[in-house]
Amino acid sequence: MKVYPNDDLLLKGLASNDKQAIEALYKENFGLIQTYILNNNGTTDDAKDIFQEAMIVLYEKAASGSFELTAQIKTYVYSVCRRLWLKRLQQSQRYNSPVESLDEVVPVEEELEEHQKKNEAYLMMEKAMGHIGEPCKSLLEAYYLHGKNMQEIAENFGYTNADNAKNQKYKCLMRLKKLFFTQYKNGN
């Protein structure tokens, strides 16, 4: 197995959501993906969409900690984008003949299936968050997304003390859970 020290570094940067790593990945890979998609019935906007999704797949893998790179990032990103694009062509029925390419690809079907599942859960959470309304949304985001403690939240949201904020947080959390699990059960 070959080792790509630079690629490993990039992955680590990606896992910690480092902007420099993201920028480097864009610069190195976007051109290739854009050419591929333009040559296969797509537009530049399609290329941007697909590339972003592939970056999320790569991020999920990198952040899971269990990802071992068996090919160059370039090859991996290209394989993911190719698979995603073929799927989208099939869905929009613009797909005419199998688009084969001579470039090297690695199998990514399993990863994409997993990504699909995760993405569904993400969308459900996004929808649930969108439905709980304010101040619930900001309150839960402050606690769970930005790691604020109850004292800070009480001050920011104008509750008289941390216990009141806690009560409010509990009510909001229950609503979010209900919204999320209703979708989750119906989705499966």
Partner: peptide
């Protein structure tokens, strides 16, 4: 799920800004 939502949201944000 909440944690994953939060980290992917942050990542998407960065992606968007970089682009």
């Amino acid at each position: 799920e909440v944690n994953r939502y939060s980290s992917i949201k942050a990542f998407k944000n960065n992606l968007h800004e970089t682009q």
